[in-house]
């Protein structure tokens, strides 16, 4: 099922993920079947330990399933080699983390520019794209600041700008508001909603934050490694 009836760009079939735990194995995901279409603004919601981040990592090709199949943008994650999955992340995926994960020695500008450097974009094109991203997020004045000089909200804005600067097809956000106060959370979510609307980027959140859940257009509730419900919110 996709929310908007668009072509599926993420598809999971009977996905199982196990991790070694001492002498036994812990099953984090159990028989997950899921499809997401282009331009969705969806969230994996559920309590801690329900498998949200594990599922996000599989979709982000940072990990591979123990069983089943994960297809992202028509490519099967489990069959890609390291270079292929790195190329997929570099070109098509954007990540936003709970703890921002900005490079501490870089300025805001350099952090946002980083994905474009990896894509070997030309300097003038990079500059234009970075300035545009900083403008979307309203942090142009912080371009020369280092992450240590920014507030949590500003850091997360930089992280979003970094994820969005290359205009990826999918943005994966893991607890993006967990370290932010209510006001900053709303600003961030409004910005992401706007980017989703204007650029058609697919957003997939992993969250248990009610502030985020309010904004989602699709709530995929996970519980104990299984999809407990999949609800489309009619606006």
């Amino acid at each position: 099922m996709t929310n908007n009836g668009n072509q599926a760009i993420i598809a999971l079939e009977h996905v199982v993920k196990r991790f070694p735990s001492g002498r036994t194995w812990f099953t984090a995901l159990k028989d997950i079947n899921l499809t997401l279409g282009r331009g969705e603004f969806a969230g994996l919601v559920g309590p801690s330990g329900s498998g949200k981040t594990t599922l996000l990592n599989l979709i982000g090709s940072l990990d591979s399933p123990s069983e089943g199949r994960v297809d992202v943008l028509g490519r099967e994650v489990g069959k890609m080699n390291a270079r292929e999955s790195a190329t997929m992340r570099k070109k098509h995926l954007g990540f936003i983390f709970q703890t921002y994960n900005l490079i501490p020695v870089y300025t805001v500008y350099e952090n946002v520019e980083f994905p474009l450097l990896l894509l070997k974009e030309k300097a003038d094109k990079r500059r234009k794209a970075v300035l545009e991203a900083l403008e979307w997020l309203g942090i142009e004045s912080k371009a020369k600041s280092k992450p240590t000089q920014l507030s949590g909200g500003e850091c997360q804005r930089v992280a979003i700008a970094r994820a969005m600067v290359k205009k990826p097809e999918i943005v994966l956000a893991d607890e993006p508001t967990a370290n932010l106060d209510a006001e900053n959370s709303h600003h961030i979510l409004q910005t992401m909603e706007q980017l989703n609307r204007e650029l058609g980027t697919t957003f997939l959140f992993a969250t248990h934050d009610e502030k985020v859940i309010k904004y989602l257009k699709r709530k995929i509730r996970l519980f104990d490694g299984k999809v407990a419900s999949d609800e489309i919110i009619q606006s």
Binding site: L62, A82, A86, R89, K90, L93, F95, T99, P115, L118
Partner: peptide, 16 residues
């Protein structure tokens, strides 16, 4: 380590 993980998430291979 967090930086290393971020590099990988952004599209660098571990070899890179």
């Amino acid at each position: 380590q967090k930086e290393i993980g971020t590099y990988v998430a952004m599209g660098m291979t571990r070899k890179e």
